[in-house]
Structures are given as structure tokens and as C-alpha cells.
Simulated assay, not measured.
Amino acid sequence: MYSFNPGNQFALGHNKYQVLEVINSETIKATNTQTGHSHIMATAELYEHYEKGDLFFFGGEVQEKLEEETIKKLLNPANGPISVNETPSFKDDYLKRDPYTYTEEELDIIEFKLSFIDEILKKNPAAFTENHIQPLVDEVYEREHTKTDKTKPSPHTVRKWYDVYIKSGKQSYSLLPRIKDKGNRNDKREDIKDVIDQNIEKIYLTRNRNSIAKVHKAIKTEIKRNKLDVQIPSYMTIYKRIKKMEKDFPYEVMRAREGLIAANEAFRGADATYQESRALECVEVDSTKIDLFVLYWNGRPAGRPWLTVVRDRYTQCILGFYLGFEPPSILSLSKALKNSFLRKDHILEQFPEIKNKYPCFGLPEIIVCDNGKEWLCCA
């Protein structure tokens, strides 16, 4: 079992982390090596992801130790077969290999898949839906593969290639056929997968909200019309495939079937609608009543003050604030925003006991708020 010791690195989803410190037996502090943000994580949940195959360790002494153990097992048959989950070198049934060992056929497969993946990385589409991926697939296929005998992949297939490639740390070996399929590759099974994926995207992932039964009927019709030498999948096969897709990509499915507004409303609390990439791109504003009483000089209570704060979502810095006894209103809101827009030099001059600098100010591109009355009134 691999532990979350300080310095160890692991990948979870599309993100890579490095353990900074072990807070206690149940939690650790890790930093996202791509964004620089730090997170407090529960080790129980991390080990659960590891057992499911969603998390794997890599890099440094951990990687060297794992590769050394793997080589010893390979050289000693008495140790028995190696499980694909024992080391990240065998993640998802893919064997880590050096590029110089690839055959010409394998290089051709990798180059074909990378041509679509590189286009996605280059264009960076706003979402991984059919409407965003299909034009990129068409463009690459028309530009590079029209004169070959290769079949144009569906957007769903390209999405799967992209996910596997990113999850492996952009290793080319992840694009090769899986080990368990080598020597027994079933082209018919690949054909039926493409037929299923294309009909799901064309019929189910639309604003018409067609049923799963209609998707199954369309698949049967296409197989019979094109006289494909494959077995017609059962209704339960299509049902399970769609339900798994809804579980893995709930936001994308809802957006395709119910529209952008409905999806954003449903996933508002999960930050699935927007990801910041720079400071002042998006700020949040909220008000709260402070848990203390302010007293006049004669000891009479003045009441509990309200604090309105403007926070930058990318840097987590407090851009500005307003402290007063007025309940949330257009007045407190405007003063907090004004404080966030302007420099804070006058505050540092007024309070020389403040030693640190306060360089946070500027005009945000997007302001996020709740449904408070101060936001709904007419200014």
C-alpha cells in the first residue's frame, strides 16, 4: 500500500498533487502542481479513489520503488502474475513502455489519436460536448486523414482518448490498445461501440429529450440497413451505457438535453459552470452579521455590525470590504465594491501599525452573488 507521505505525488482525475504535510491520521494537505492551490484532503476518500483506479502515485522515490518491485516480479515467475492495480505503470491495463520499442503499426495508431488530441489541447474548447468537439474532429480528419483508410472517430471516442492521455500524464503508451486485447482484437466490437456512441450523441444528447428506447431502435435500424456483421445489442446494454454516462458526466448530459441555463442552475453549487484562470476574472460578494457587540463609550450597546466582503475566486484574496451597522443594502454593497476597485494606500497611511502591504484592487470581469435584495433592487 502506498502512503500519502510528504513529498509523494499522485494524480486524481485530470489533476496532479504533491503532499505537503500530514495533518493527522485522517487528513493531509496537498498542493495542485498545475494551479498552485492547496487543499485539505481526507485520506479515507483518497484511498477509496485509489481502490477504484481513479488515483495513482507517480514520480520521485515512489515511482522508482514501484518500478524496481515490478522488475523483480517480472524476473521471478515464482512471484505469480502481476496485478494491473499494483503500480501506476500498469494503470488501466496499459503497460509503460519506451517509445523506441513501438512497432510501425503502434506508432501509426498513436499518431492518429494524437492528431485529434493535439487539436483539442491547441483549441481548448469551452466544453467537451458534441457541438464543441465535432468541428475539431471534422477539421483534423479533413486536413490529415481523408486520403487514408482510417474511419473518422466520433466525438465521444476522441473524448475517451483525451481522458486516458491526460490521466496518464500525457504518456504516448496510454493510446495503445490495452494489453488484455492484444492478439485478440475484435474489430466488430469496435464497430458496434462506434455505432452506439454516435446514436447516443445524435439522438439522446439533444434538446428533443428522446428516450433510451428510441436510441435502441435507431441502433437496430442502422445495423440492419448497413448490413453490419455484428450482434444487435440489447436494450439493457444501451440503458446501462447511458446511465453510466449520466453518472460520469452529469453536467454535460443535462446541458445537452435541457440547455445551458438549466445545467448551470442545477450545478451552481458544484462549481461546474465556471473555472477561473486569472485574478480579477471573477469575484464573489457576500454579507454577514458579525458575532460581537459594539459598545458606546458609556457602555451602552450599539449593536452587531454587518461585514460585506469582496473576494477574488482565483487568488482567494479579499479585494475590498465595508463594515457598518446598516443591514445589507445598495449602500453597503456600493461601498464594498468601491473599496475593492481602489488602492488601499490611504488605509495604510491612516493606520501605520499595519506592517504588511495591501496590493489588492481592480475592476473584476464577473461579479457572483446570491439572491439578496440588495442585488435585486433598481439602482
Rank of each mutant, 00 (worst) to 15 (best):
Y2R: 14
N8D: 08
Q18C: 04
V19P: 01
M41P: 00
E45D: 02
E48W: 01
K52V: 01
L55I: 10
F58W: 11
K65Q: 15
E69K: 08
T70S: 15
N76L: 08
N85Y: 08
F90D: 01
K91E: 12
Y94E: 13
L95H: 08
D98V: 06
E104I: 02
D108T: 09
I109N: 02
I110Q: 04
F112G: 06
F112T: 12
S115M: 05
S115R: 00
E119L: 03
P125D: 00
F128S: 04
P135W: 03
V140E: 10
P155I: 02
H156I: 11
Y162G: 06
K167P: 00
S168N: 04
S168P: 03
L175N: 06
K180L: 12
K188S: 14
I192G: 06
E201Q: 10
I203R: 09
Y204R: 10
L205T: 01
R209Q: 15
N210H: 08
S211H: 09
I212N: 07
A213I: 14
I219Y: 05
I223V: 14
K224C: 04
R225W: 01
R225I: 02
Q231D: 15
I232N: 01
I232M: 09
P233L: 05
P233N: 05
S234D: 02
T237A: 08
T237W: 03
E246T: 04
Y251D: 11
R257K: 13
E258L: 06
I261C: 07
A262H: 07
A262M: 09
G269M: 12
D271N: 15
A272E: 15
S277K: 08
A279W: 10
E281G: 10
V285N: 04
T288F: 15
T288P: 02
K289T: 07
V294D: 07
V294L: 13
Y296V: 00
Y296C: 11
A302D: 09
L307G: 03
V309T: 13
R311V: 15
Y314E: 11
C317L: 12
I318V: 13
I318L: 11
L323A: 02
G324N: 08
E326L: 11
L337A: 03
N339A: 11
N339H: 14
N339D: 14
Q350T: 03
P352R: 03
E353F: 09
K355L: 14
P359H: 04
G362A: 05
D370A: 08
N371V: 08
K373W: 15
E374L: 01
A379W: 13
